[in-house]
Nucleic acid binder design. Sequence first.
RNA 1: GCGGCCGUAGCUCAGUGGUAGAGCGCUUGGUUGUGGUCCAAGAUGUCGUGGGUUCAAUCCCCAUCGGUCGCCCCA
Length: 438
Amino acid sequence: MSEQKIYKPKPISGFPEWLPEYRAVELEWMDKIRAVFESYGFCNIETPAVEEIDALTAKGGETEKEIYTLTRLHAEEGDKEARLALHFDLTVPMARYVAQHFGALSFPFKRYQMQKSWRGERPQKGRYREFYQCDIDVVNIDDLPLHFDAELPAVLFEAYQKLGIPPVELRISNRKIIMGYLAGLGINDPGVVTRTLDKLDKVGPDGVLKMLAAAGVSETVAQKALAFVNIKTADSGFAEQVQSLGVSSELLTQGVAELKFVTDNLSHLPKGSIVADLGIIRGLDYYTGTVLEARFREGDPLAIGGGGRYDDLAGSFIHQKLPGIGVSIGLTRLFGLLMDKGAIQPGSKSPTQLLVVLPEEARRAEASATAQKLRTRGYNVELYHSDTKIKKQLAYAEKKGIPYVWFPPFKDGQPHEVKNMKSGEQAQADPATWAEKK
RNA sequence: GCGGCCGUAGCUCAGUGGUAGAGCGCUUGGUUGUGGUCCAAGAUGUCGUGGGUUCAAUCCCCAUCGGUCGCCCCA
């Protein structure tokens, strides 16, 4: 034993990591999500972890103060790296990417990205400082058919379905509706009002009214706004309810028509999975039309995904009008929430399917060749690392959850044998022909 | 940036003003080529860090760092 001082390892808040058996599940999820995205023709890109600070902040907004910037430990004044920072989402990097490779891309550009993002905020339940997001976006030049506003939520929903998690619902609205409505009410600072209304789930109607009063909104207007965001319908019935509130504006009418189109085109999804919810507003200020949030139908009201339409995402990067719509799965949040509830069934601790026993050092060459033979036939095979007791070698397989143990000949002329660890059965086998019984 | 709670073996935690324990895990053994159960033995801690009070502090006080939950904001 060394006398070396140890640095006691500790978790870093907001930077999650999982044991192999759980990471295996996370990887499986990513494969499934990816398969759904590709089945709709989305291609993959990966952008660097870092962007220039100027690129990240080009759009402005609240997220700015959460950006992690990059410096070298021994940075000197005027260090060039100081202009770099970690991206806080995948949308801004995509916008930059599209603008940069504009001439080489084909439009509508449909891409997905599954990468980590970083935000320097205080972690809490379902909230991390390093997290995976799985984004899909469609970007086009000048105009983007409304049809995509229905297709992307459908893709998102299908991805959730494939994961085998508790039922998810998509709550959909359209920014034009709330903006048109508030304008009709004569509210000139929709930012404060929408942010307050967005908290309805958390603070309740009374809380919202109080906060609105504090923001200088009159009681009657506040009541109307509250009635508005309470509108939730499983189909296009919201349209009548909006009309009955007696406010009208061109923007409002347009928004209602768009949302109606979207809900109508999503009516094929299972009952209860789509809700037109005018209380969905969403913080990100680049959204201009359809907005949506995904959450579990029961339990935590936290968003496990979301997205929306933006009229002009890359406007700060290129003189081209590039409207788009994107949705995103908050993979780490989704996974973390279910982990906390103990709802993730752990996978295997190791990908190994077969453990080849090493009977004695003198037989290593033969055991190694056996393992290699089985690998060429497509199995994941591990050769036990030392010639310790068979007992220990089996215990190792047991502990790692390796389903089969392969016994090469212990003496010349003996046959190979394979043992099924679950049933305990053991039988002669040939490495060239053995197959796992399903 | 702000507030509540917490910080004791690898993990989950108990405990006392006189320098520490349980369960799980880990290692070894229960002979000859076979695991999961059982039994036995064993290893492990500057009781987060710094300061103060005290004859004496893991326990009291202060600070600090870290964790966690919440606020702001957000997936």
